[in-house]
Design a protein around this nucleic acid. Structure first.
Length: 444
RNA sequence: GGAGAGAUGGCUGAGUGGUCGAAAGCGCUCCCCUGCUAAGGGAGUAUACGUUAAUAGCGUAUCGAGGGUUCGAAUCCCUCUCUCUCCGCCA
């Protein structure tokens, strides 16, 4: 994919887009390359240097040709207005057009190559990110609560759900295929209660603005948040005669793009949005993983937190946002640990990510239930999201952050498994009870 | 689905081939004047890239997007996207 050829369906400008700050890349190439190594990314320095060198020369010469054309065209206009014979002047510029055209197309081709190279470069990790290759190298930062002890044989959410009635994977498979679930009855109510509870908590206690956004988005939007072009295979694509859209993999995509192509005033920042949406993921490449149960589904509900912040505030905002997600787990009384992702496990767009992992008795382990990241200016650059810095008076890129607050499906599982009782019934954590017309437990 | 209108700078809104990055008004910033208030006068006020020590100059690009015609395009042609109005349909 290349943006210049995308046509920007939403009418966004198509001037040069470079993913990492190209000035930073040029002036401080070495340190950028070093930092990218933490992410196990090898930047092709030679290819970049060579393309940049060519670009510089070609851009200057092309612009000189354009300048000449403009000057001469102006002269022709003036001569014509003065009633002079313009034919000699026209003859002079005859060859200019072709030269310009070839220079422009050569420059365009070169830009395209450069953009392709740079679009594949991930965001630079923050200095505090530990080195490491995989999730095994993530480091626990803190933990909260104790995994509950049971004096009976623990069941996982699949057994519990089937015994209680209302959770049916086979039925879903008949309707849609693998990695879907149908639910009926109190479990669905519990899921809805979780959504309500979380949103209310974030709006009323954490100062978020509730947001609603499309579940189908265009390619430019996905480019903005970094899913395109590299991670297209993770998405569900809706293509028809009149439509070319993608199902959102997370509310991060449409909500962060709220500020795409805009210049915000300093007083407006930070923006804090909370949104509940379903999320759709193709899960290509994870065929063998978590095939049982609700852990990994093509469709799941999530309450997402998004911050748009001033650059200086974004690292503090990450702590803040992560804390809001943690609060939910604490209020629900679910044991969890907080890990910082190592370089090798860090996402393409992120500079620093905390994962919150909730204790799942059914799996006897901690599993990710929230992922909170600071994307710094990476997404902002791609989506042209800026703010006017009063100190410089100039538009500068904002920082964007997001985190799950929380993944609903997995929270549902966590509650089922952690609050299960010997008879297979499930206690309802007290903060949820008001959302369940006072119900204190679910039983079959 | 049918018919029509439109898209210009922070906003309103001129501009149908030439010196237009774009009139004018509003807003905003700075200055002057004015003993409050009100009013008045002047200057400035898009973004990106390149060059550069420079947020100084200079150059280039951008008037919804992409392409075309032309020495020259906001202006002409084609395609697309979006918005609005009327009719129809519809949660």
């Amino acid at each position: 994919m290349h943006l210049r050829r995308l046509g920007w369906p939403d009418g966004r400008k198509t001037t040069d887009l470079i993913m990492l700050d190209s000035k930073l890349l040029r002036s401080d190439l070495e340190s950028v390359v070093e930092k990218l190594k933490v992410k196990n990314f090898v930047f092709d320095v030679d290819a970049f240097r060579e393309l940049e060198e060519q670009r510089k020369v070609l851009q200057v010469s092309t612009q000189e040709l354009q300048s000449e054309r403009n000057t001469r065209s102006r002269a022709i206009g003036a001569a014509k207005a003065g009633g002079e014979n313009i034919q000699p002047l026209l003859d002079e510029v005859a060859s200019l057009g072709d030269k310009l055209k070839s220079a422009e197309s050569e420059l365009g081709g070169l830009q395209m190559k450069l953009d392709e190279l740079l679009q594949g470069v991930p965001n630079v990790p923050h200095d505090s990110v530990p080195a490491g290759d995989s999730e095994d190298d993530n480091i626990e930062v803190s933990h909260w609560g104790e995994p509950p002890g049971f004096d009976f044989e623990v069941r996982d959410h699949i057994d519990l759900g089937e015994a209680l009635g209302g959770m049916d994977f086979e039925r879903a498979a008949r309707i849609s295929g693998s990695r879907f679930v149908t639910m009926t009855g109190p479990l669905v109510t519990l899921q809805r209660a979780l959504i309500q509870f979380m949103i209310n908590q974030h709006v009323q206690e954490h100062g978020y603005t509730e947001a609603y956004a499309p579940y189908l988005v265009n390619e430019a939007t996905l480019f903005g948040t970094g899913q395109m072009p590299k991670f297209k295979q993770d998405l569900f694509h809706i293509e028809s005669e009149n439509h070319d859209l993608y199902l959102i993999p997370t509310a991060e995509v449409p909500v962060t793009n709220f500020v795409a192509d805009s210049i915000l005033e300093a007083e407006q920042l930070p923006l804090k949005f909370v949104a509940h949406t379903p999320c759709f993921r193709s899960e290509a490449g994870s065929y063998g993983r978590d095939t049982r149960g609700m852990i990994r589904q093509h469709q799941f509900e999530k309450v997402e937190l998004v911050h748009i912040s001033k650059p200086d505030d974004s690292m503090a905002a990450l702590e803040n946002l992560t804390g809001h997600a943690e609060t939910i787990l604490q209020l629900l009384g679910l044991a969890y640990r907080k890990v910082i992702l190592c370089g090798g496990d860090l996402g393409f767009t992120s500079t620093k990510t905390y994962d919150l992992e909730v204790w799942l008795p059914g799996q006897n382990t901690y599993r990710e239930i929230s992922s909170c990241s600071n994307m710094t200016d990476f997404q902002a650059r791609r989506m042209k999201a800026r703010w006017r810095n009063p100190e410089t008076g100039k538009p500068e890129l904002v920082h964007t952050l997001n985190g799950s607050g929380l993944a609903i499906g997995r929270t549902l599982i966590a509650i089922m498994e952690n609050y299960q009782q010997a008879d297979g019934s499930i206690r309802i954590p007290e903060p949820l009870q008001p959302y369940l017309h006072g119900m204190t437990e679910i039983r079959g």
